[in-house]
Design a protein around this nucleic acid. Structure first.
Lengths: 333, 333
DNA sequence: CTGAAAGCGCTTACAG
DNA sequence: CTGAAAGCGCTTACAG
């Protein structure tokens, strides 16, 4: 007897199908084990009742939440959005849901969000920003949850890392610009740990070639299109003017190009610009932007693959998964 | 006696504090009711054990998931991102988490994501895209969950709607351009229901002024920066050339301006451009972009406010919450 | 292939 | 202000 306006539960389906609740549960979680005829009766009962399994009860009983927390600094203009897209797509394929946590550019909400994820017994926690707080890292390590750090390759990952070397990116850019004969770069550095790693890689490679340390300019976080005005204002009063500006993002690079043009300075003829990230705008901009391509979607897929391997009980030996990157020479430098 | 490597539960804390589990539960959910001295002992026990409440068990017992599903088409270059940011911030303040569901530009994954949300007994479901499928709307209506449709004001909301009138936006743009003396607009329409509403509003107002129906161009979804090339290619072969292009997004507007400049056509002197959304780039672009401001963050906050009122047992009488919009005249038109 | 039953870790009237 | 106890809706050995 199904009651009106009360949501049907496993028991209602079982009664209607003339089987035990255990069998209905198996029908959902282990279908190959139930007899075809039984399955058919259950299917009918489900259709009749409009039953939808209560996964929060299921999660408690099975000790699997099917919840993966994805913690990112922001979503507004974020370089991580392709990674988020890929993870959402992959995870929902397996019946998981993603909890989106926005930590803020300064990671100020990170600790609370991690607690929220652990309190829901998330099957996995995926971080995109670099988490430097050792207490927090230790806290996460002490839990049994899978935690995946993405977009970087820390020496000692909490658990598993999927990313690439930011110092290598910086070095690659330096080598490229050296090869093109640039003399006087300005390195624009965002106030973020990884941006500094790229800067370090650049400076090391640049000075290793016998050049003087490059000029630098720090911009605040989060990266905004409007910062390009700050950058350009700074550049305009430099003497001598740099011949190439290395930006921390394609958005910033695009803005700098627009400001340069508005000031009557041609890119790349009078000043060159390099971006980072290879967003769609990098290829579409006029001039198209020389940048570093990072396959954000692949990072997302690899992260989910690790989660799957863990769920399958597989031992993960290599805790560093390097997806690499690729410098793409276009018109702007 | 706490066991190593087993995660502490309510019972462990209770034993250690010398109280019942009921009291520890109250300590978390109804703190004003437990005696200060008792609370202190519980606090100590929590600290000693490193206890973190299992909210999935709590959710089952209390019939509150503290989970709100936010279903958006995409996150890559989405106009909804400010709304998402605001909702995440507000919801985590109340101890809720947000499930992010990416439905795809064509909403193809919407039904599955709704089921995933309902299966977790989400306390609320927030939609940003217009959901046209009547079966799905009915399905949602039959549940007791709060559902909030945002960024639009459908005549008959599933539950509550927070947004603005898209036809009014179109009409406003028409009136503005009429006032500025434009003669020959091209309306670029994305293949989306709401974009069509804005187009309808524009055309109605434009023709009501005694003008001929404007030229139109449809662009595919999702809106990408690269589409501006398509638009510009189309414009270049129009004869006579339009004197103003009405774009469905600021990103598209920006791209069109860049293409125009690359083709040696000055904006707004030779051709004007109007955007939609008032993203940061609209104000920062050269020329700055005339657009329609929508307060996406406010939409997010209002949606969460509705959720709170529901949680407090308040009756919601007005099912339409109009947050309005504002045409912002800048340099591009 | 299926069922009876214990258990997952909490919350919440009810009683005191 | 606090406790004993039932219950939330599932899953999963265990036995057959």
């Amino acid at each position: 007897m199904t009651q009106k306006h009360s949501i049907p539960k496993l028991d209602d389906v079982a009664t209607r199908a003339g089987v035990s609740t255990a069998t209905v549960s198996r029908f959902y979680n282990n279908p190959e084990v139930v007899a075809p005829a039984t399955a058919e009766r259950i299917r009918a009962a489900v259709a009749d009742t409009g039953y939808l399994p209560n996964l929060i009860a299921g999660g408690l009983a099975s000790n699997r939440s099917r919840l993966v927390a994805v913690l990112v600094p922001e979503v507004a203009q974020s370089i991580f959005n392709d990674t988020i897209e890929a993870m959402c797509a992959e995870l929902s394929l397996d019946g998981n849901i993603v909890m989106l946590g926005l930590t803020g550019a300064d990671n100020s909400r990170l600790a609370r969000l991690i607690d929220a994820a652990l309190a829901r017994r998330a099957d996995g926690v995926i971080l995109t920003a670099l988490m430097t707080d050792e207490t927090l890292r230790e806290r996460l390590r002490s839990r049994s949850t899978t935690v995946i750090e993405t977009w970087g390759l820390p020496d000692d990952p909490i658990d598993v890392a999927v990313g690439f070397s930011h110092t290598a990116v910086g070095a690659d850019i330096a080598r490229f610009l050296l090869g093109r004969g640039y003399q006087n770069p300005l390195v624009v550095v965002a106030a973020a740990a990884r941006a500094r790693l790229r800067r370090d890689g650049f400076v090391r490679e640049w000075t290793a070639a016998g050049r003087a340390a490059p000029d630098e300019l720090e911009v605040p976080l989060p990266t905004r299109y409007g910062h390009s005005r700050l950058v350009w204002r700074h550049v305009a009063q430099m003497n001598p003017r740099p011949d190439v500006i290395i930006c921390g993002s394609d958005v910033l690079a695009q803005g700098v190009i627009i400001e340069a043009h508005a000031a009557g300075v041609r890119v790349p003829d009078q000043i060159a610009v390099v971006g980072f990230g290879n967003l769609a705008i990098a290829g579409d901009m006029r001039p198209s932007i020389t940048t570093v391509d990072v396959d954000g979607a692949r990072i997302g897929r690899e992260a989910v693959a690790v989660l799957r391997r863990r769920a399958a009980g597989e031992q993960i030996v290599d805790r560093h998964i390097d997806v690499g990157f690729r410098l793409i020479a276009r018109e702007s430098a």
